[in-house]
């Protein structure tokens, strides 16, 4: 299949998500007319779009992992807590004199271990995903607090700080991490059979097992990917504030990730994997947050306005919204005799 055909097909499926993103970006431009302006200084790009991509990075990583989990008809509630654990592990290690690559490797290892734990609970022991990951969601933050002793562990290691606040080739490093993770996962799921296996498990676990898919192994891998993504997000958040805040790092972000995946067209009944669409969902959410912040609305209205706008977007993407849209814009097929 040609690349052109691929692109047009993607554009067709991504229509609702692209429309929502365009809507939110438009809203931002109304609120702050210079929204799309980019400036170059100190060897890096500055501007609101860059800020949006940079700030969206942690939730983007979570949403990539979450989309894969959701596509298997699962859910991973523990990602916020895993972020806190990863940040805590990295901060403790650099503060005890370890070089930053070691700290990063250990944090990613902790994320993989958390994912393995979730995967085993779901795939081997057979606990329902929402319950299985709830265990780590509650206990994980406690583990992070034990690691940091309940305080915010500040560090000065420039390497670890750069993961959250550095720049490379003009773009913030969190943006590069997001793009690299997205590319790797898209290639992994679309150029190999893994994506098909994941969707098959989501549609019908029994049938996929009978047709030879090693669903146990695939499920464990998927939860480990989610854990790894959460650990990356945790490193970014810790690097950004140069400190590991076990109580607040990643708090409630699992819900943002689920929401982004749903805006990206995922079905909580599984079977639909759209990583790039989930990213569009994340950027839409972050755009909404930016618009609300820039509007100067009193803080009390933040959540209510956010909820209303999200409800509007989801309604427009729903089957009913789609029917209304088609009625307003008659397609060519209906006009043709």
């Amino acid at each position: 299949m040609s690349a052109f055909k691929d692109t047009t097909r993607w554009l067709m499926t991504a229509r609702p998500q692209l429309a929502a993103l365009a809507l939110v970006l438009g809203l931002n431009m109304v609120i702050a007319p210079g929204f799309l302006e980019l400036t170059w200084s100190d060897g890096r790009l500055y501007g609101s779009p860059i800020n949006l991509l940079n700030r969206a990075a942690p939730v983007a990583l979570l949403a990539l992992g979450m989309s894969m989990v959701i596509a298997t008809r699962g859910i991973d509630l523990s990602v916020g807590a895993v972020m806190a654990i990863a940040g805590a592990v990295a901060a403790v290690l650099v503060n005890s004199g370890a070089p930053w690559p070691v700290a990063v490797a250990a944090a990613l290892g902790a994320g993989l271990a958390c994912g393995l734990w979730n995967g085993v609970l779901v795939a081997v022991i057979g606990i329902q995903p929402i319950v299985a990951t709830l265990i780590l969601m509650v206990a994980g933050r406690g583990v992070a607090q034990l690691i940091t002793d309940g305080r915010i562990l500040t560090f000065n290691d420039p390497g670890l700080a750069a993961i959250g606040g550095g720049a490379w080739l003009g773009l913030p490093i969190p943006v590069w991490i997001t793009l690299a993770a997205a590319m790797a996962l898209i290639v992994l799921t679309r150029r190999t059979a893994l994506g098909l296996f994941i969707e098959a498990i989501g549609v019908n676990p029994a049938a996929s097992r009978l047709s030879g898919v090693n669903s146990r192994m695939v499920l464990i891998c998927v939860y480990m990917v989610s854990g790894l993504m959460a650990a990356l997000a945790g490193l970014i958040v810790a690097g950004d504030i140069r400190g590991a805040d076990a109580n607040n790092a990643g708090l409630w972000l699992e819900l943002d990730a689920i929401l982004a995946a749903v805006i990206g067209g995922a079905s909580l009944y599984g079977g639909r994997l759209g990583l790039s669409l989930a990213l569009l969902g994340v950027w839409t959410l972050q755009g909404l947050k930016l618009a609300i912040l820039r509007s100067g609305l009193p803080a009390e209205y933040n959540l209510i306005v956010m909820a209303l706008l999200i409800a509007v977007i989801l309604a427009l993407q729903s089957p009913a919204g789609g029917r209304a849209w088609r009625r307003l814009t008659p397609s060519r097929r209906e006009i043709a005799p």
Binding site: A32, S48, N248
Partner: peptide, 23 residues
Amino acid sequence: VRSQSGDFTRSRAKEVMESLIRS
């Protein structure tokens, strides 16, 4: 001139402050 919630946390306050500096 502006009053926004930073949820008592470092990272949220940093994000909010970035936007406020711009606006």
